[in-house]
Amino acid sequence: MTRPVRDADTLRVIDFGRASALRSQTLWHAVAHGVSSGEPPTLSFVRPAEPYVCLGYHRRLDEVDRAYCAEEGLPIYRRMVGGGPVYLDSGQLFFQICLPARSVSPARTAALRDLLSPALSAYRAAGVEAELDGNMEITVGESKICGHGAGQVEEAVVVCGNLIERFDHERATSILWLPNPTMRAEVLRMMRRFVNATPADPEQFKHAAVAAYADALGLTPEASDLTPLEWAAVEALDEQFTSESWIAGPHGRPRPPVREVKIRAGVWVFAAEHEDARVVASVVGDSVDRAQFRTSTPYDGLSAAEAAMAGVTLSKAPAVLAGFGSTGRRLAAAFAAADGKSL
């Protein structure tokens, strides 16, 4: 049995083991409330016992295919940290580092870098040659290997990530509401290319993460458990996170006219249309990776237009498509509607 700790030089380490889908969220949110109230910085681990879908705080519920989730028995929860809708299951081990807000950089990017960097040592100790790239993604090659998010809960900052031992690309795509099968296939293709599992020993990963975060923060790790107040917070959060109003989310942006899906930082897929011209395209950096066009008016040049767009920067898309007559101009207008701002 572990005991609660309060030493100022202590890094509390709490391994929640396997937890229900709901508790795999509410347990660490309760830790944030505890740290906000004066509990020591805390590194926690949790593995969801069952699959579910989780939305970033601001994301629209209609980004998720709720009919698919209901059919598959996947609950949908909303977290207090950022990022998009994601599919989680027992093939992913989640870690959360939580500190008093006053102890992290006021600059969010710097805070994120400071609190993600120790995780790199953990991946490497587990045999995964991970890097933190310029887009603040933990990667191996061009693949994102860790889904992260961050947030401030009262007076505590928490950064979350995961060791993806297995990743179900099909389900991760299926939980998203997408307007047509072409976009679904393209999202799946890009997800397979840019999001990947790194099978590794989770115990080795956890052990190394504890050492790395303790070292980076100058703290002494000590196995612990939630305090009675934190357990009370868990129960309150269980109620909050299952309430319709919380799952519906805050009053935020109106639904964008173009469906855009971020695969990883700098990689996204969109579906847009203008009059009878329909576009599904994937973008890497600022260049088109693949464009797929449909028009209800027959046009023999569609395949040539698709081929011409590969590798073209978004800013030059109108000029390239202008070479394809009035159809090209309609396709260009569809392209112009996608700006990545909804991501």
Partner: peptide, 11 residues
């Protein structure tokens, strides 16, 4: 309210 930047949500 809440502000999100770089996948970081804060009050």
């Amino acid at each position: 309210g809440q502000l999100e930047a770089a996948k970081f949500v804060g009050p």
